[in-house]
Structure formats: structure tokens, C-alpha cells
Design a protein around this nucleic acid. Structure first.
Lengths: 180, 180
DNA sequence: TCTAGCTATGCAACTCGTTGCACTGCACCT
DNA sequence: AGGTGCAGTGCAACGAGTTGCATAGCTAGA
């Protein structure tokens, strides 16, 4: 549904190959719309056939040739059309929540350890986000246009992680005092 | 991967038919692990073949017969096994974030309207969560066991929605002042 | 009376996303 | 000399999830 559009957004900012896009997805837009290289290659081909992007084969020395994609006028129209259309709300699908809900049907201590582990992973992700914020947006008050919008999305990630961490702490405390 | 286990958790709490489960999913566990009736029917059949659940056909008057499923010993073992095993972290996939990031490539005002609309939907969901909290968990300090765990998961939903709303407000304010 | 909605289950076809693998050549480490 | 990792594209198979439809009788409202 919308991987196409996430790619259009990313390619409009800068042209690139499938491989390169896959890496961009790992570091920025993919925090909010994850995709593997396989998916990206397949969708790029479809978009190419639909005329939303065009590609140029670029020969390289010492490494494989690549196809650099860029957004066509049709692609820009499609992106504008999509931007004006309503989006479905994001759905959560959280296995950890299911586990917590079922904790008393198994080893509660193991579930608690899982919560602690997830807390750690999310804390690390939050640090990544904060690093990006410090590096790329040191003065948020002065932002506008594309940079402002990138910053706002990052803020969403930061807020989501902060709230997840706070939740983990609440859960950890409650499960610990229940056990003792 | 884990719909099976979400169903096991729900069925352990109370036996039920596929139809009934689908409704439970719409109102409780499905907030964190959404599923359609189709998926539930298919997975229930698979679980039945695997021996994790058993079913009893119940004839009814004035309405179709139903199959009431309940968790078998094997199913309880499987659930305990899964509870002790690590879960993958939840992935976000948020079309709204992609839109905000691409806002300057289309109609920013339309994107802003979308953010406002999502804010409304999430505010409504938050009210649903708070209603459940008031009704089912008026005295959270006294909870333990299954009820405590249900409460904690609900807390996660409340926190996530609160933080989403705060983000929407930040985005709305920033986009509005950018436009004027 | 006609329409709509609830209860109840299920098939078929489809899209979306994941996983494992394949091929090439270079660079770097041990 | 051998393993690992990067750059680059891609196929094939699978699993998960969605959508549309079918069937059937009951109930409640316009």
C-alpha cells in the first residue's frame, strides 16, 4: 500500500539505487516504515513499470553495476495525490503485551526478564534517535519545510520510545513487587 | 507466529467459539494483536489439528451451531514454552509519519488536516481505554496475578495513546505556525 | 414489508512481507 | 589460504494478513 510512497518520499529527497535505499530505510524512514531490500527491489520494479520512477544503469569499477532510480513527473503527481488522501491509523502488534497478559500462565520471572531486555533495546534505540536529533537538528526552533517535517517525525519516534520505556519501568516494578 | 499464542491466552481465560473470540479480539487483546475472524478461524483449525485446543459442537436454537474451543494440556504446555522464549520487538509502521515527512512535496494543509483527524481517532481510543480502566480496575494498587497483568497491558495502551496525542499536538502546532 | 444487522462458519483469491539462496569481485583480517 | 563483510541485484518459496463472497435463520426498526 504505502511502501511505494515511502520510497517516493525518500527518492524525491535524493536519487539512489535499490541497495542504497535499503540502507536509508535502515537508518531513517524505515524506523517508521520498515522494509527489506527484497521488498524494495520488487516495489521499485513495479514503480518503474508504472512509470513513477525511471532508472539509469551506472557501471562501476570493482563493484557491480547499479541502477539509480529517480522520481518522474508521474511519480511526483502520484505522491501529491497520496499525500492528500486519508491514511489508515497505524496498528500496534506487540508480542510483549500478549506475553505480559499471559504471564500468570507460565514463568512470570521469564516474562519479567523479557520486559527488562526489551527495555534495554528500546533505550538503545532512543539513544540513536537522540543522537540524530543532536547531530541534525541542534536548533529546532529555526526549522521549516522539509527539515522541520523530518524533525517532527523524529520527535514522534523519541516520544514513542520514551513512553515505551516508562511503561517498561511500570511493568518491571509491578512484577517485581508481585514476586517478592 | 504469535496469533496462536494470543488465542491461547484468551482461550485459557475463558473457552469460546471462533466468532466469540473475534469479538474479544475487537475489544481487548486485539488492541495489541489485531486479527480478523478469518484469521482466527484458520488458526483455530490449525491449532485443533496440532492438538493445542479441542472443540465441542454446540447446537443452538434460532442461531447457527457453534464450535466451542478450549485449551488442551498440550496447548497449555505450548503456551508456557512460548512465554519463556524471547519475543521480537514490536514494529511500528506508521503511514502518518511518512506523510508528515513528505508534507512539503504536496499539500501541507491536507497533511495537517490528516494529523488533526488522527488525533481525534486516537483521543477516542484513549477514552475507550480509560473507560475500561475505570470500570475494570478502579483500585490498581490492590491488583495481583492475571488482573494485574491485564491492567499493566492496558496501561501500555493508555501511555502509547497519550504520547501519540502529545506528538500530534506538537506536529499540529509546528505545521500551523509554519503556514501562517 | 423490506432492509439491516446479528450469530456462526468458512472458501478462494489476493497482496504483503520474510527467508534462504545465488552470483560477482573487492578489501581486510588472521 | 580462508573467512568475513561490503556492494549490488535478483529468484523462489513460503507465511501472514486482507477482502469479497456465500449461506442461513432470527430479530428489530423504518
Amino acid at each position: 500500500m504505502a511502501l511505494e510512497h515511502a520510497i517516493l518520499v525518500s527518492l524525491t529527497e535524493r536519487a539512489g539505487s535499490g541497495y542504497e535505499l535499503a540502507h536509508r530505510f535502515d537508518r531513517s524512514i524505515g524506523f517508521f516504515w520498515p522494509a527489506t531490500h527484497q521488498q524494495i527491489y520488487r516495489v521499485l520494479r513495479r514503480m518503474d513499470e508504472a512509470g513513477w520512477v525511471t532508472h539509469t544503469e551506472v557501471a562501476q569499477e570493482g563493484r557491480p553495476d547499479k541502477k539509480v532510480y529517480q522520481v518522474s513527473a508521474t511519480g511526483r503527481d502520484e505522491l501529491a495525490r497520496w499525500l492528500a488522501e486519508p491514511v489508515d491509523p497505524a496498528v500496534l502488534r506487540d508480542g510483549l503485551a500478549v506475553k505480559i497478559r499471559g504471564a500468570s500462565l507460565g514463568d512470570t520471572a521469564a516474562v519479567l526478564r523479557e520486559v527488562v531486555r526489551h527495555r534495554g533495546e528500546h533505550a538503545a534505540l532512543l539513544e540513536v534517535y537522540r543522537g540524530i536529533q543532536r547531530r541534525d537538528f541542534p536548533k529546532p526552533a529555526k526549522l521549516s519545510g522539509r527539515e522541520l517535517h523530518q524533525y517532527l517525525v523524529l520527535r514522534g519516534g523519541i516520544r514513542a520510545e520514551e513512553s515505551f520505556l516508562a511503561w517498561c519501568d511500570e511493568v518491571i516494578e509491578a512484577l517485581r513487587s508481585e514476586q517478592s
